[in-house]
Each structure stands twice: as C-alpha cells, then as structure tokens.
C-alpha cells in the first residue's frame, strides 16, 4: 500500500511538471490580470482623486458610457439574432441540399472568415465606397451613390453588424452543418415515414437535437460581440476621423486607459464587461451538456 502510494506520488510529480507550463500561463495571464484589475480600480486618479471603489460609479456616470452602451446593445440586437437565425437556416438548407457542389459551397462560405480585423475594415471600406465598390450596382438600387450617404454615425450599428456577421457566419454554418451530421439518419427516416415534411423535420426533430450547439454558438457570438473594438477603432482613427469615437465599450475602456490615463476606470469597465461573458460561460458549462465528455458537471458524474 505504502509502495503504491509512493509510486503514485512519483508519477504525479512528472504529471505536475508537464502540467506546470500551462498552469503558469493560466495563472499569470488568466487569473493575475483579473486580480490586478480589481486592485487597480480603487487607485487615485485625476477623475477619481480620492480613490476608492467610486471608480465604478464614475465610469457609469461618464458622458460616453451610456452612448457606448446604446451603440453596443443596438449592434448586438441586430448582429446576434440575425447571425444565429441565418446560420441555422443555412446549415439546415445545406443539410437537405442534394447538390454535388456542397463541398464547393462550404469552401466559399469559409472565405470571409479570412477577412477579419484590420483587413475587414479595409475590405468594408472598399465595399461601401460607391466610387469603386464591387457591389456598387446593388448599392445604387438603394440610391446610395456616395460614401457620405453610407458612412454616417447612426448607420454604424448596421455596418458593424454586417462586418461581424460576415467574419463569423461562414464558420458557424460549417460547424452547425457538422452538428446536423451527428443526427442519426434513422431518426430522420422514421419521421419521414410518419409523413413529416422537410420543414417539420427541421423544426421538430433537427433543431431540438442540436439545441446545445445553438446555445454554445449563441454564447460565443454574444460574448464576442460585446467586446467589439477593432472595427470602430480603425474606422475612427484610420479612415473617417471622429465618426466612431468611444463608440464601443471596449473603445471607451481603451480611451480611459490610454488617452485619459485613468487605469482605475478602465479596469472597472473591463471587469464589468467580464461579468456577462463569465455568466455566459457558466451557463454553457453547467446548464447544457455541451461539455459532457469533460465530465465537469458533478451531477452527471454521479449518475455515470
């Protein structure tokens, strides 16, 4: 018994050595930044001269905060449901599609994923510049013939929603198409024999069976959308100056830190933005069986 225990602890030593590089990175860049941000919040600054936890309140009362919340919520209200619905419909269509070109279609859908961040800003600048846009004809159908008609502050939510949509929709179509492939053909066939149409099968059989993947996708899309930064930042600083200043919450955190030098306020805002992402993560982990193989859900473990 003693010998067995000794062998096990020796084995574990090697295991700890192999685990330690990741553990170091996890603690150093996953945990410590959060602790440092919490400690940074009460520091005295020009906007919070007495220091203390008022930093949260000061950020909430910043004149740029509410407009940024409105912008991000407006953007999310368009981007999140549109993307989720579109992806599901496209994946279902691809699943029932009998063509031989399915492989080529999937390849085409994944192409826009290569256009992200700074390149996406460049490409969308070109797409929405009627003078040389590859879609200038469709733009003209809507009476859009100059860039001034398009690049207006109130239209930015739609433009950023379109940019974010194209950057990720193709990937998710492929992933949800993959999740649909996991449904047994027999289940579908049985429903068909019972007289279900393709629409009924999609609504009543396929969608309930891939629900957890849809929730997983929803959480990742939501969490990513909340952190929109590159597009408004580059449009504002690089192309149409002043059009999207402090437009998103991440931009405001950036401005607080690097323009105002208010790291307490920036940290407070970052921490507030972290909360919804954390809640979303916890929902996916504990309220869905997305990660059933990881056996982190204790109830399941007991049942097993």
């Amino acid at each position: 018994m003693a010998k067995q225990k000794k062998v096990k602890s020796k084995n574990n030593f090697a295991m700890w050595v192999m685990f330690s590089p990741y553990l170091f990175l996890l603690i150093a860049f996953g945990l410590i930044p959060i602790i440092m941000a919490i400690l940074e919040v009460p520091h005295e600054s020009r906007v919070n001269p007495d220091g203390g936890w008022d930093a949260f309140l000061i950020v909430l009362q910043d004149f740029r905060f509410l407009p940024a919340v409105r912008n991000v919520l407006g953007f999310m209200a368009i981007f999140v449901p549109t993307t989720i619905l579109f992806v599901i419909v496209m994946a279902l269509m691809l699943d029932v599609n009998p063509t031989k070109w399915k492989k080529w279609l999937r390849m085409a859908y994944i192409v826009p994923a290569a256009i992200s961040g700074a390149v996406a800003v460049l490409v969308w600048y070109a797409l929405l510049q009627p003078a040389f846009s590859p879609i200038k004809e469709p733009l003209s159908w809507f009476g859009l013939t100059t860039s001034d008609q398009i690049w207006q502050t109130e239209k930015l939510v739609y433009i950023f929603a379109a940019m974010a949509f194209f950057a990720i929709a193709g990937n998710w179509i492929l992933i949800q198409f993959g999740s649909l492939q996991s449904i047994s053909g027999e289940v579908i066939e049985a429903a068909r024999v019972d007289g279900c149409s393709a629409f009924q099968i999609a609504l009543k059989i396929k969608l309930p069976l891939i629900k957890k993947y849809i929730v997983y996708m929803g959480v990742l899309i939501f969490a990513g959308g909340l952190q929109i930064f590159v597009e408004p930042q580059l449009i504002d600083s690089g192309i149409y100056s002043g059009i999207a200043e402090s437009w998103s919450l991440d931009q405001l955190a950036f401005e607080l830190a690097f323009t105002t030098g208010d790291f307490g306020g920036a940290s407070a805002l970052s921490l507030m933005l972290l909360v919804p992402s954390l809640l979303g993560a916890l929902v996916v982990i504990f309220k869905t069986d997305m990660f059933e193989e990881a056996e982190v859900n204790s109830n399941k473990k007991v049942e097993a």
């Binding site: 553990l23 440092m36 941000a37 950036f254 920036a266 972290l274 979303g280 982990i285």
Partner: peptide
Amino acid sequence: KRSFLISTLITMLVPPMALVVPIFVL
C-alpha cells in the same frame, strides 16, 4: 483536476479581449 478543467472551460469561453486592459496593467 476538476477545478483545472472548469477554469480551462471558463477561460476558453471568455473572449480574450475582455482581459486586454488588465493584461496591459500587468
């Protein structure tokens, strides 16, 4: 082990951008 797995899943689902300002401070 279970705590490491859960922390891994949480870190995986939180967008990396959420930690950029805190990482700058560090």
